[in-house]
């Protein structure tokens, strides 16, 4: 069996986000790029499953839709332990476009299990996994927080309101994973870092697909207003501020 892990290349989660002067595009100056954190969890679990499968999982591949500047992030995934990588050479414009491109590779290369993070930490669409399953006509399981291979009798746990649902599923399928799928993302070892450059990244051209979404504008969150301190005994002042200024009373 083969596992394909979908990975986004996203700004480091501590990045100070800025947009261009027209507020239409992310200003990428000085941005450090990382593997989308949920995808990194998916990759870590995929590698653990492979190691525990007794050879039944023959390889774990990663796929990214992005231009050549995404390759350092892809190589990090290879350093962590992925066996090889696919990169579809295109700007990842929207979830529909991304899912369509992944579907092409997944079909052509006959992957049995496809794992992706529940959402990306930059655009938070949370749509690629479900769309991908539709393109492939595979079942998809969302919000997976536990993945047990069990010698091929795969058991997944989903987070539902107030508890967890355990389900079994047969390959091929798409698992959309979230926190809990593994304890921590794996840190690349020296040997993995050394090997990363020797592992193949297969670059393909995108298939013609329309993007369905055009972002009109981006807004930054309103910065927090200054906090006003009111003396504990001065309730009149508090009511006056809540009524007159905050207008919540």
């Amino acid at each position: 069996m083969k596992i394909l892990v979908c990975m986004g290349n996203v700004p480091d989660t501590t990045t100070k986000i800025r947009f261009d002067s027209e507020m239409k595009k992310l200003d990428t100056n000085g941005v450090q790029w990382v593997i989308n954190p949920w995808d990194e969890l998916a990759l870590t679990r995929a590698l653990e499953i492979k190691e525990q499968s007794g050879g039944k999982i023959e390889k774990v591949s990663v796929i990214n839709i992005g231009k050549a500047d995404a390759e350092p992030t892809i190589r990090k995934a290879l350093a962590i332990g992925a066996d090889d990588a696919y990169r579809v050479d295109a700007d990842p414009t929207d979830s529909y476009f991304i899912a369509a491109q992944i579907a092409e590779v997944a079909k052509a290369e006959s992957f049995d299990i496809i794992m992706c993070g529940i959402e990306s930490s930059d655009f938070n669409d949370a749509a690629v996994g479900s769309m991908l399953a539709e393109f492939l006509d595979y079942p998809s399981v969302s919000a997976v927080s536990s993945f047990e291979f069990n010698d091929g009798n795969i058991s997944l746990k989903r987070d539902i309101d107030g508890g967890k649902e355990t389900i079994s599923v047969s390959a091929p399928f798409v698992a959309i994973v979230q926190k809990g799928i593994c304890i921590n993302p794996r840190i690349p070892a020296m040997r993995g870092i050394m090997m990363a450059r020797t592992k193949p990244i297969k670059v393909t051209d995108p298939v013609a697909t329309d993007s369905l979404i055009e972002a009109l504008t981006f807004d930054l969150p309103v910065s927090k207003a200054a906090c006003k301190m009111v003396d504990a005994d001065n309730t009149d002042k508090l009511i006056e501020l809540l009524h007159g200024e905050a207008k919540v009373l």
Binding site: P72, R75, K76, A79, I187, P188, A189, M190, I193, M194, A196, R197
Partner: peptide
Amino acid sequence: EEQLMIKQAARD
């Protein structure tokens, strides 16, 4: 790239 990856691995 490898040097940066090692630095980040140590940091993490």
